[in-house]
Design a protein around this nucleic acid. Sequence first.
RNA 1: UGGGACGUCGCCAAGUGGUAAGGCACCGGGUUUUGGUCCCGGCAUGCGCAGGUUCGAAUCCUGCCGUCCCAGCCA
Length: 563
Amino acid sequence: MSDVESKSNFIWDAIDADIAAGKVKDKVITRFPPEPNAYLHIGHAKAIYIDFETARRYGGYTNLRMDDTNPLKEEQEYIDGIQEDVHWLGYQWENLTYASDVFDTMYELAEEMIKKDLAYVDDLSAEEIREYRGTLTEPGKESPFRTRTPEENMDLFRRMRDGEFKDGEKVLRAKIDMTSGNINMRDPVMYRIQHADHYRQGGKWCIYPMYDWAHGLEDSFEGVTHSLCTLEFEDHRPLYDWFLQQLPVHKPRQIEFSRLQITRTLLSKRFYIRLMKDQLISGWDDPRVPTIRGLRRRGYTPEAIKAFVEMIGISKSHSIIDSGMLEYCLREDLNRRSLRRMAVLKPVKLTITNYPEDQVEWFEGENNPEDPDGGSRKIPFCRDLYIEDEDFMIDPPKKFFRLGPGREIRLKHAYYVTCTDYTVGADGKVTEIFCTYDPDSRGGWSEDGRKVRGTSHWVSARHAVDAEVRNYSDLFKVEKPWENTEDFAAIMNENSLEVLEGVKIEPELAASAAGSVNGSIEGIFQFLRQGYYTVDLDSTPEKPVFNRTVGLKDSWAKEQKKG
RNA sequence: UGGGACGUCGCCAAGUGGUAAGGCACCGGGUUUUGGUCCCGGCAUGCGCAGGUUCGAAUCCUGCCGUCCCAGCCA
């Protein structure tokens, strides 16, 4: 039994009960039903995980369904993008279906409803319908058109379909109960008139079904046994059941779970579209936005995202997950697979005064200490090096384990070096460091067993390649950006992207980055002590570009913060 | 007296009458050629509150309190 199979949650308990009660005749069938009006974000990843893993748990299958009942919003571009993203997450659907493919059957069943006097054509305007609906605390009242005969309704409905009326002139409504405490049951609209071309059906229809009428039928037609959705549809379940109850069709069961919320993160397609319009982000794959493709470009792996969804669990409580959990899942995954490379983000020159001027040595460095089969790469070493600016202090405190005057550290994979001197520029900044090396410490070991606490990464100045690092801010840094647009825009403009030019990287990193442009899994690296990076879309072999994915824990930085 | 849901550690989350799993975060310690990883230890006498039933309650009953969702011809 895998983890997924052994764990449980209230949804699987309910399905177990259904199976025990003999309610599931054949396979457990689920569906993931996005409306193709945007790209998917990490909130959808939770739904995808639940839909697909549930079906898999019971040996059933999942359909991918485009819930395209609104011709004003949907586009082919999104259909393609959604499929790519679901695939990227590692899931394969049984059938790709479209709500719009069953418009005919839905229409016929609507006529059935009219015959049974369970639906009527209403002439009230949108505003009047709203008034007649009542309020949360007051019951609604019945439309004067509610008593039309089935014959009259049938005639009117067919004329609606045939395009005789203008948008908004008439709607088809279910005849239920205008006094229900559940507002969804107060004669919900089933069809509205919309003289608009559908991206798939063209001009075939001018009436389009509403969600509540369409969704249960779509589930039913596909033989879905369990229709899993988010909490805001709880109120719709009585209506979902009511529609299906009136017709001789298969009856799926709707079960709701809480939707994903993450601290400091806004999961809203509407908001992403506005950010794009304001040119605060570059598109759906901008690394700052938590869309599936944004996360992918940022360096997130499908495995990390799925591990995250599994970790947070499935429940009905309104929870807001700490974004640290997502980052933890990424670090855990990347630690196993990322290639370790040396890079110097803010270089300071380091010269080894007792190393032969023209000598070059090639050291061997393992690709990943977590993976014994991960192989290794060659690293050039010479007299002229760069180390990280923050790895040297003129007057280091006791707990600083890195380089300082008179101190000895290990250059990873190379030699022990001791600082003998340094120069300072006019601004007080260290401009160059001078060291001597211990020839007996080749490879970073010494025979005498002397302890060297610090290990720094470095890069050969003669072999290093220049690169660029883009450090994107963590998703969103403001709590409620939609409430204060100016502040948000300012924050996005000023702080959301830090670009480091002149980063020095080891030749092997440049080589492997050049071979993995497009942010593929293979393009993920860990720059020692600096965190995880992924190759950016803008990267070229001549100028490698990396996106900062997630930082490492840094106990020295934490200690400094404490004071 | 509108309807529907939810309240277990800072954040998630198991638990379904037998005496509070686990993860993230945090705090100690060990290993370490990444101040990473890994390993060990600590972290709810209490489950929104108040009563009640019971030998025994987070789990059952009653009454409160708090939070979220619903008044699109969106999904």
